[in-house]
Write a protein that binds this DNA or RNA. Structure first.
Lengths: 194, 194
DNA sequence: CCTACCGATCGGTAGG
DNA sequence: CCTACCGATCGGTAGG
């Protein structure tokens, strides 16, 4: 049933869908738009995928898995909280940089998931955010960080991370690893000249 | 033609539309959804507005005007660059806090504008961002800020600002003015304990 | 603000 | 991967 060729074609369908979802949004992208971009008829898409939403699910939960795996590794390290935060940031950005299109869909289109997928997705996200919050709280408790509002801090962090697919130019000078470190510098050290 | 009552009803239509656009997205909100939420028939909406997109235009450009006015005032002040940045941030957040729903639509749905409106909108946005960038560049030139990548800095700033409508709870403890100052503290001073 | 309606398009299925 | 097609829904108009 699932030959290599079928999987490969399914992957192509999902990739092209991700491009269109990113550019026009999930709701504004029709299956006919997708079929047309692939050079086939709309009905033919259903040989590869079960529904339009299945594509979105695949993209959203696929990215969620990668983000979680990245954070798992960081949490397992025996390093300071500020170093954990830095590695959490660079890890998140590395994951995004490997698929900026899917990352943008993950961020902007997940709300079009139907239940119970939407609920599951939001639970994964809040869990991920809370793990970063714990790192920041740990850093405050150990005096590495100032006593700032941790909700504000973690939301600022996530804003910065999640907006990146909307402006980062992978063909530009800065590579993802440097970008992650510079973002970590900025959030940890601030703009001010000491 | 434009009696007070008509204007008022038009405002109601736009407000309700903003709520639905925020919750479900522009493309996934039908005129029938909107009519239903208002307790009228879909066709009746067109007594108040010319098209679905006109509503989106009104929301997006209305917010853009408010943001621009806020920054105009800050730029006219004779204060340091770091103080300009702080007031730019608090001003932006005050504008958003006055209409979190329209702010969310402004941020997430503007891409559904058709040409030439989309082009105009994006020009307004890049202009606004560049004015913040100039403030940061001024702060670096005057040694108030470190020599960071200004594009990264301004994008981080905008990420933080624009994501706020998605998590800020106006019924919570923190008021918009304090939120703006805390966000400014965080971006200017960083997380690190000195 | 309503009834009645338009042409276009939607996601998806049947059957090959 | 195709042709042929389904019922539902879309934004919007005519005319009152």
């Amino acid at each position: 049933m699932l030959s290599v060729e079928n999987l490969s074609r399914k992957e192509q369908v999902i990739r092209k869908a991700a491009e269109l979802f990113r550019e026009y949004g999930y709701a504004a992208t029709s299956m006919r738009d997708l079929a047309n971009a692939l050079g086939i008829e709309a009905a033919s898409l259903y040989s590869h995928i079960r529904s339009k939403e299945e594509i979105l699910q695949s993209l959203c939960f696929g990215m969620a898995d990668l983000f979680r795996d990245s954070l798992n590794k960081v949490e397992a390290m025996d390093i300071s909280f500020s170093e954990k935060l830095r590695r959490g940031i660079t890890g998140h950005i590395q994951v995004m940089a490997k698929d900026l299109i899917a990352s943008a869909v993950f961020m902007n289109e997940h709300r079009h998931l139907s239940q119970p997928y939407l609920r599951d997705f939001l639970l994964l996200r809040i869990n991920y955010i809370n793990r970063f919050k714990k790192i920041i709280e740990g850093g405050i408790a150990s005096d590495e960080f100032r006593k700032i509002d941790t909700k504000l801090a973690v939301m600022t962090l996530f804003s910065s991370l999640n907006w990146m697919p909307n402006w980062y130019d992978p063909s530009g000078i800065i590579n993802p690893s440097d970008l992650g470190n510079q973002l970590a510098d900025m959030l940890i050290d601030g703009l001010k000249n000491k």
